[in-house]
Each structure stands twice: as structure tokens, then as C-alpha cells.
Amino acid sequence: MAAIYSLYIINKSGGLIYYKDYGSAGRMDTNDSLRVASLWHSMHAISQQLSPVSGCSGIELLQADTFDLHCFQSLTGTKFFVVCEPGTQHMESLLKFIYELYTDYVLKNPFYEMEMPIRCELFDINLSQAVQKDRVALLGR
């Protein structure tokens, strides 16, 4: 049983730059993951328009019937979101940690072009370690 189902990273214009699946039923194909990512980008923007008070920065948590979606937006507009089991705790800190990994292993990589899909081996390794550690922590409770 996976606590985290998948992870997406989208750039500031809504393009999917990273997608990793950790065992959801019926893996999404590439086209669908791109569509879902840009759809989330627009939903995030619309939710800011509908805010009854000013200063809204978009959806942080979406609670669906079978999963929770936690979203973290960095100051530059890059959005990180994880799909996890309903009621999973400590996802904000995991997202912040993934953001740290992104700054360390992706942004500081001289061969990485901004806003382009992420292909960095070190990022992959460290990310899977982080998610694995998170899973162990979840199983331990």
C-alpha cells in the first residue's frame, strides 16, 4: 500500500516538468499527465480569483473521495504537488524538502535549462530516498 501515489512538478506556465508515479492503479500516460498538470495550474489560478478575502495564493489541499492532493507553490511560481492517501500527515514538510532537493540538484545543475523537463540523476536518487524514508516513517506509525 502506497502512502504517496504520485508527484508532479509544474513550471510557472503550467507545463509538466517532472512526474513520478509510486504505484497508483492504472498509470496515466504522458499526454494525460500533461493535461492534468496544466488543468491543475488553471484551477489553482481560478481559486485565487474566487477568494472572498484578498491575499489568496491558491489551493493548498484538495480532498477527493479516494485521495488528498497537497500543493506547494514556490515564490517563482513552480508548483509541487503530491497525490497521497486521504488523511496523510506531514505532506507540507515533504513538499518543502522536495523543493530543497529541487534547488540543490536541479537549479544548481549547470546543464539544466530553466522551465524545461527535469532530467537529473542526482535529483532522482535523492527524491526516491526522501519518498522511501517518508514511507518508512508512515509505516512505522
Binding site: 504520485s6 497508483s24 496515466m28 488553471s42 481559486s47 477527493a64 479516494t66 485521495f67 497525490v83
Partner: peptide
Amino acid sequence: LLFSLKSLTAKMDPTS
């Protein structure tokens, strides 16, 4: 927004 969020969650559903 609700309509689109519903189609998003239906598509993302990791259990089916």
C-alpha cells in the same frame, strides 16, 4: 471550477 475539479479528480483517482 467545480466542474473542472471534478473531471480532474476523476482522472487522477489512484485507486481505479
